[in-house]
Computed example of a mutant assay.
Amino acid sequence: MVTLGFNRYGKAEVRVVRVSRGTGPDGSDEIRDWNVSSSLSGDLAGSHLTGDNSHVLPTDTQKNTDYAFAKRLGAVEPEVYALALGRHFVQTQEPITRARMSVEEFGWRRLSGPHSFARDAGSVRTTTVIVDRELGTSIVSGIKDLTVLNTTNSEFWGFPRDEYTTMAETRDRMLATQVSAQWRFRPETAGEDTDFAAVYAQATEALLAAFAQTYSYSLQQSLYAMGERILADVPALCEVRLALPNKHHFLVDLQPFGLTNDNEVYYAADRPYGLIEGRVLADDAPDEGIAFS
């Protein structure tokens, strides 16, 4: 005997580029570049068990809704866009009780002139909004693919050793990682009137400051310092989730060439890598309520 467990469906990675004409500084254009994914769940058992699609809003319709709401809302913050979409799906489709909207935003910087931009390389702004008919609304935003590096002020020693341990202890190493950070908004601060742009800027600045200012004895210590600093600087947030791959840099042996290497020449290893993950929560953080898996 088997039963159907939790299930959901949706449209993944809809590319939406929204240009708002003449709404920026001095009449310049504004641009939002999004990768949008929707996922709906609810009374969908019939589709799985008998092929009854009467409760299944087509994923193509979800895609078209993404485009229509981009037109209606304009170049808004990604959280505002995701909130509107999630509420729309739950409010207009009775069988759908939960909508999960995920938006990745790719940055562009202005060039000279009102209509010219260059794509920012590297980091991507993220947001995930869940609208649940019973549990309410929750917002987790953040940043990913943000590569940071300290050339020194990092050590790693005092770890346990066994018969398989070959790594030497180090009192001076290069520390680099590609940050994936998410921050959860307090329920009372997660609405259309929230200044999401300011929160993103403040949280990112706090993360970078903590990484730069922490003398690190482990990447775990750096993770906690970043989460702690974000929560201290941004009261609208109650939790920070971090995933930090250790981007290893190893000293090159230059002795065969008659040269010394005083922590100057490295090679950057691609894989394998250590992966450090953790959550930092405010003492008064409310229960998560809605899982974000």
Rank of each mutant, 00 (worst) to 15 (best):
R98W: 03
I139A: 12
R100Q: 10
G5V: 08
A68P: 01
L146V: 04
D43V: 07
R98K: 15
D29W: 08
W183S: 04
E239G: 02
V131P: 06
G27P: 12
K144H: 03
V131Q: 05
S102I: 12
L83R: 06
N150A: 12
E163D: 15
E277K: 09
L73G: 08
T152V: 04
E104S: 10
R72N: 01
L219A: 08
L85A: 03
L254Y: 05
F250W: 12
S222C: 07
S20A: 15
G274L: 13
W183P: 05
T127V: 15
D132I: 06
A201E: 11
A99N: 09
D195P: 08
L254P: 10
D253I: 06
A225P: 02
A285D: 08
A212R: 04
Q178P: 00
A236G: 01
R271G: 14
Q182A: 15
M1K: 06
A197E: 12
T92P: 07
P58Q: 06
E105T: 14
M1T: 12
Y164H: 12
G22E: 10
Q178S: 13
F211I: 06
R15N: 11
Q202R: 15
S222R: 07
D287N: 07
G10F: 10
R119N: 03
T127R: 01
R32N: 03
E77G: 02
E188R: 02
Q178T: 15
P187Q: 04
G86E: 07
G51D: 11
N35W: 04
E104Y: 01
L146D: 09
E134K: 04
P25V: 13
G51M: 13
P25K: 11
P245D: 01
L223G: 08
T65L: 15
E30S: 12
D193S: 15
N64C: 11
Y67E: 13
D43H: 07
V280G: 01
I290V: 15
G107H: 10
T165N: 04
G74Q: 03
L57G: 05
D162T: 03
F185E: 01
R171P: 03
K63W: 05
S116L: 11
P235S: 02
P272G: 06
R110N: 02
A68F: 14
D52A: 02
T50K: 09
Y267S: 08
E169M: 11
G42F: 05
A84P: 00
P256N: 10
L281A: 12
E13S: 11
L146P: 03
P25Y: 05
E13C: 05
